[in-house]
């Protein structure tokens, strides 16, 4: 009776029908990948079935769910989970919330921080995906089991990443020049497209400089050289970590490969890092970043 009364007014019925007609407005997805981007620009094609393989996990979980927030310079905890960055920022890299735990510890899912975050029993912060289960579904136990299995298998990289056709280059750095960080970074993470030759890299390979930028590279003044400990993750030979010897105060910094050092950044095939033209001193700058520490 009440419904008849409601629908008895033509304008009400019309408005209701107009509302319902919006159902037809959902995109049909033609020509798009799972992220709603044109095929070819965002990875392309439907994702493979979920399996205990990194490419599958990336396509089914990290890209469509996690990288909605974990992307770009503002990614929470500096953890970018887009296809270009995720592996190198996950495997063998200490978490920023609980530095004693690696985000992914190959062979040990129980002590991999990502599993603790996904299962909701991490010591710090909320369960991921953020807001689950209220605003979005949590990952099911079955889904998490695939990630567990991948980690138990040693967290192998995606198969395509082992092809060394391209020269050795940096794929991502955290922190980078996009946004300043508001506290001294405990480490600088440099990810590469190839596995590195750990025997060719040690703390003589690079250092951090505090700089006063000039109008050109040549006029840039170095106000402090910050020694750093350099190491390659045993679990991920494509992730290089640089640990400053002390906390960095506010200022402009750059990460520099030491000129003439007996050790150099190179991959297992012996290819040296392809960088921009070295400075007059022969040093090569990998990255610049700003620290803005607020009291």
């Amino acid at each position: 009776m009440a419904l008849r009364h409601f629908l008895g007014h033509p304008w009400r019925t019309g408005t209701l029908l107009a509302s319902l007609s919006l159902a037809a407005c959902a995109g049909n997805g033609v020509g798009l990948d799972a992220n709603g981007q044109p095929v070819g620009t965002g990875g392309g094609g439907p994702p493979p079935p979920l399996s205990a393989d990194f490419s599958s996990i990336q396509a089914n979980i990290f890209t469509p769910i996690c990288s909605v927030c974990h992307i770009g310079g503002g990614a929470p905890e500096g953890l970018r989970l887009d296809a270009a960055d995720s592996y190198n920022l996950l495997v063998g890299v200490p978490s920023t919330e609980v530095p004693s735990l690696d985000r992914v510890k190959p062979g040990d899912p129980d002590n991999s921080y990502i599993i603790q975050k996904l299962e909701g029993h991490a010591a710090v912060g909320a369960q991921m995906p953020f807001g689950c289960p209220t605003t979005q579904p949590c990952l099911t136990a079955t889904t998490i089991a695939f990630i567990r299995q991948w980690i138990s298998n040693g967290a192998p990289p995606p198969a395509v990443a082992t092809v060394h056709a391209a020269p050795l280059t940096v794929t991502s750095i955290v922190p980078d020049a996009v946004e300043p960080v508001n506290e001294s970074p405990p480490q600088i993470m440099v990810a590469f497209n190839h596995e590195l030759d750990v025997w060719q890299i040690d703390s003589r390979s690079m250092h951090i400089e505090k700089i006063v930028p000039g109008e050109s590279t040549a006029s840039t003044l170095v106000s402090e050289v910050v020694p750093a400990r350099v190491s390659v993750s045993n679990a991920n030979l494509r992730a290089l970590m640089v640990w400053p010897s002390h906390q960095l105060a506010s200022g402009h910094y750059r990460l520099v490969i030491n000129a003439g050092a007996p050790t150099q950044v190179s991959d297992l095939a012996g290819n040296s890092l392809a960088l921009a033209v070295p400075s007059e001193s022969g040093e090569s700058v990998i990255s610049t970043f700003d620290v803005e520490v607020h009291p």
Partner: peptide, 12 residues
């Protein structure tokens, strides 16, 4: 993304 076709979403 207004520049991409066929990607709209609706919710009821």
């Amino acid at each position: 993304d207004r520049a991409v076709r066929n990607n709209q979403q609706t919710r009821y």
